[in-house]
């Protein structure tokens, strides 16, 4: 029974920690931090092409990264300083929340999907892209859509929202299939290539990026009616409406001027085809006037 006391003490400490945040959550801490350091710290993903990745010269690059660089310019104007520098910190799905919570990162610019459960922990900007779940399959498999996967094996990447919408879709359509969890996007392709799985389901744009990395891209196809309809957005800590207003302002102005559509066409279209009607409508709606 000697260990019981320390365990109870640990529980007590954790419970005490729970009551702290109410006082710790001061509004707009990120904006204060940016003003003091004159630096915007951007969390980015190293291999989430085309949204955020390290390019040939090991520099952060991509659609989301490009947008966040523009946020730094807008922040300089808003805070009335000459320049806001940008500092890039690589994040993973496992580290993004702790790094935002402890203030290491001011804004995460990657491929994070907005969800109500997640909004209890962080705030999201306006959407910068739509995420639609599709199937990556071998062309010779004959699989065209979800019903073809009855009795087959479906690979899903850990840490994606696909797990939820795929299971829901399978249940709704009474399809039985085995689910294989793979570690990340990069491992979904080998799973399909080696016939361990028959389809890898994830966001169609990311799948487009995965196929481009394949040794023989022609063997694979991204197929199916979209299984999900989600928003890709930037993430900031709770209670940072000042910073969020600047970020959303950048997105709205770019959408209104048509520049956002141009950036999307330049970065994302090579992976997912030209801008579709839904995304065009999204950008039109987000072009909020001054």
């Amino acid at each position: 029974m000697r260990v019981v006391a320390p365990v109870l003490a640990l529980c007590a400490a954790l419970l005490a920690a729970r009551s702290l945040p109410a006082s710790a959550q001061v509004a707009d801490t990120a904006l204060h931090r940016i003003q003091e350091t004159k630096t915007l710290t951007i969390g980015f993903r190293e291999s989430a092409e085309p949204f955020a990745f390290l390019d040939g010269s090991q520099q952060p690059s991509g659609y989301s990264v490009e947008l966040c660089r523009r946020v730094a310019g807008a922040l300089a104007q808003a805070l009335k300083v000459d320049e806001i520098r940008t500092r890039f910190v690589p994040v993973t799905p496992q580290t993004r929340i702790p790094l935002i919570a402890n203030g290491t990162v001011d804004v995460e610019c990657g491929t994070t999907v907005n969800a109500l459960a997640r909004q209890q922990q962080v705030d999201f900007s306006y959407a910068v892209a739509l995420s639609e779940g599709k199937l990556l399959v071998r062309k010779d498999s004959g699989i065209r859509d979800l019903p073809d996967l009855a009795g087959k094996v479906i690979a899903l990447a850990a840490g994606t929202t696909a797990d939820r919408y795929v299971r829901t879709a399978l249940e709704a359509r009474k399809i039985t299939a085995r689910i294989l969890t793979v570690r990340d996007n990069g491992e979904g392709l080998p799973a399909v290539a080696s016939q361990r799985a028959d389809a890898f389901i994830n966001d169609a744009v990311l799948l487009g990026g995965v196929v481009r990395t394949a040794a023989e891209p022609d063997r694979f196809a991204v197929v199916g009616t979209p299984l999900s309809f989600e928003q890709v957005a930037f993430m900031v800590g709770k209670n940072n409406s000042g910073l969020l207003t600047v970020i959303n302002g950048v997105i709205a102005r770019l959408a209104r001027s048509g520049e956002l559509q141009g950036l999307y066409g330049r970065w994302v279209a090579p992976y997912a085809g030209p801008i579709d009607a839904d995304t065009a409508a999204l950008f039109k709606i987000e072009g909020i006037p001054e």
Binding site: Q94, A117, A158, T161
Partner: peptide, 9 residues
């Protein structure tokens, strides 16, 4: 991890 991914907790 799955819980963390879904809820960010």
């Amino acid at each position: 991890r799955q819980i963390e991914d879904m809820t960010f907790h």
